[in-house]
Design a protein around this nucleic acid. Structure first.
Lengths: 148, 148
DNA sequence: TTAATTACTACTAAAAGGGTAGTATTAGTA
DNA sequence: TACTAATACTACCCTTTTAGTAGTAATTAA
């Protein structure tokens, strides 16, 4: 039940783009340096995010990436779904024909509930929320420094 | 974010044992045949379940496995935790020292909430609950047959 | 025209997933 | 005491996934 680095890195890419929403594109190189992740690897993660309409690219020199909608309209669920390919803990939840015992499988009911909770939880957090919480944390750190 | 077959099969083993609670041990062979899973594979899953005190074995001829506590006291969380080794979607949630950025990482907060929801959901379902739901389903199927 | 950027394709090493196989140990029973 | 049916333990193995690396092509601002 571990998320891959794809979702984790993806969330960090998106949060960085959210910080720059309406302020022009950002180079992947910059994000890679800031977040200390390989630029080549990030360039692969960006593809499904683009395919899902979460961001768009400007090619060529002075290009970069930008969110394609407001941070308030993009949730962590969108990001994870784009990068993991699915959200459900077992296949038969999203695709009942994957198992012939689906009809009277009580265990499956648990997995289905779990899926709903996961989806609900991730959908309840938008990039805007993350941004606010990030700014709060940074402010707190700032105060600490001043107190010294 | 997929559960491995270990948890899924494990839940089915445990549910079968719950059905026979206080009625003596069951052979793994029987469970394997009933659930259509390799007996050799199941024999590996049983080890962590035993290590976590969820069941115990009787060795030798006429041996088998039994739950070591009442079905009402064993939850799906216990089973998944025993078989997956962990419940958290990212390592830094259970083990903060895994990442140096833990302090002011807003993304991590989402993973932490997710972890709590997953734990809460799986803990809310006991083997007894599963048993009841299974019996309900079987009764419904029975009625359908009678109606024909 | 050049330099900086994204886009695309191929490859790879390591780990995890999902088992199989064989032997050792234990214990009920004839 | 054998025999047999069960669990216990150890080792191995194939396939898929993960987490990248590498190189080249296409695009475009300056």
């Amino acid at each position: 039940m571990r998320l891959s680095t794809r979702s984790r890195y993806g969330a960090r890419i998106m949060l960085r783009l959210a910080q720059n929403y309406n302020k022009g594109p950002i180079f992947l190189k910059e994000i890679a340096q800031n977040e200390d992740i390989s630029e080549k690897y990030l360039s692969q993660l960006v593809i499904p995010l683009k395919a899902h309409g979460l961001l768009f690219a400007l090619r060529g020199a002075q290009g970069g990436y930008q969110l394609s909608k407001s941070p308030s309209k993009i949730t962590v669920k969108d990001i994870v779904q784009a990068l993991e390919g699915h959200l459900s803990p077992v296949e038969c939840v999203e695709n009942p024909s994957a198992c012939s015992k689906v009809e009277n499988c009580s265990v499956r009911d648990v997995w289905e509930t779990l899926y709903e909770k996961i989806a609900e939880t991730l959908e309840s957090v938008s990039l805007e929320d993350l941004l606010e919480s990030k700014e709060m944390k940074e402010q707190l750190t700032g105060i600490k420094i001043c107190e010294k």
